[in-house]
Simulated assay, not measured.
Amino acid sequence: MIVLTKENFEEEVLKAEGLVMVDFWGPKCEPCKAMMPSVHELADRNAEKAKFCSLDTTNSKRLAISQKVLGLPTILFYREGKIVGELCKEFSIEDVEAKLQELI
């Protein structure tokens, strides 16, 4: 998983080729922390199919809002700088995997 910041977000996500999954999370978000090991495992299993990134929104609130992230956890899928899939608030790792397979 690539750790995103406001400094590298554009290069790693918006200018990237192919499918990019971004996990927006926060250290005070219990559902985020509970799902994180499964998200990392999914990323490891599918590393050759897509790029996987995570963004701690604590110090990047404006960036998160600019991407229409209004609640956590949120996972967005990007292709050619555009959002092509979204999972927000109440979803399971199975939902993430299904969306990933749908978009690959």
Rank of each mutant, 00 (worst) to 15 (best):
C29F: 08
L42D: 04
N8F: 01
K61N: 15
T74R: 02
Q67E: 09
L14K: 02
A34C: 12
D23S: 06
R62S: 15
E80R: 05
E12M: 11
K68F: 15
Y78H: 08
L72A: 04
F52R: 00
R62G: 12
V69H: 09
I83A: 06
E10K: 05
C88W: 10
N46T: 03
K89Q: 15
F24Y: 04
K33G: 13
I75N: 00
L72I: 15
L76V: 00
V20C: 01
E102W: 03
K82Y: 12
E12T: 10
A34H: 15
E80H: 02
K6Q: 10
P73L: 00
L19A: 07
W25S: 02
K61P: 12
E86G: 04
K49D: 10
S60K: 00
V96R: 02
V69I: 13
C88V: 09
L19R: 08
C29M: 05
A98W: 01
L19G: 10
I93Y: 11
T5D: 03
E90P: 03
E10Q: 11
S92L: 05
D95N: 12
H40A: 05
A16N: 02
A34T: 15
F52V: 06
M1F: 02
S66P: 03
K28A: 14
S60W: 02
Y78S: 12
G71D: 14
L87D: 04
L63D: 02
R79W: 04
G18Q: 08
C29E: 13
P73G: 06
T5N: 06
N8D: 01
V39K: 11
N59T: 12
T74V: 09
R79S: 13
V3W: 05
Y78Q: 11
S92W: 11
L19P: 12
Q101W: 05
N46M: 04
S54A: 14
K82L: 06
A64E: 09
K6P: 05
C29L: 06
I75E: 00
C88S: 15
F91C: 13
E80V: 06
V84W: 07
V22T: 10
E48M: 15
K99S: 08
E12K: 08
E10A: 05
M36W: 13
D44W: 10
K6L: 05
R79N: 09
F9W: 01
K49H: 14
E90L: 13
Y78W: 02
A47V: 07
V84H: 07
S92F: 01
E17Q: 14
E94R: 14
E48V: 12
V13T: 08
E80W: 02
E94P: 12
S54F: 10
K49N: 11
S60F: 10
I93G: 13
A64T: 02
W25K: 09
A50E: 09
E10G: 06
M21A: 14
E94M: 15
A43L: 03
L87Y: 08
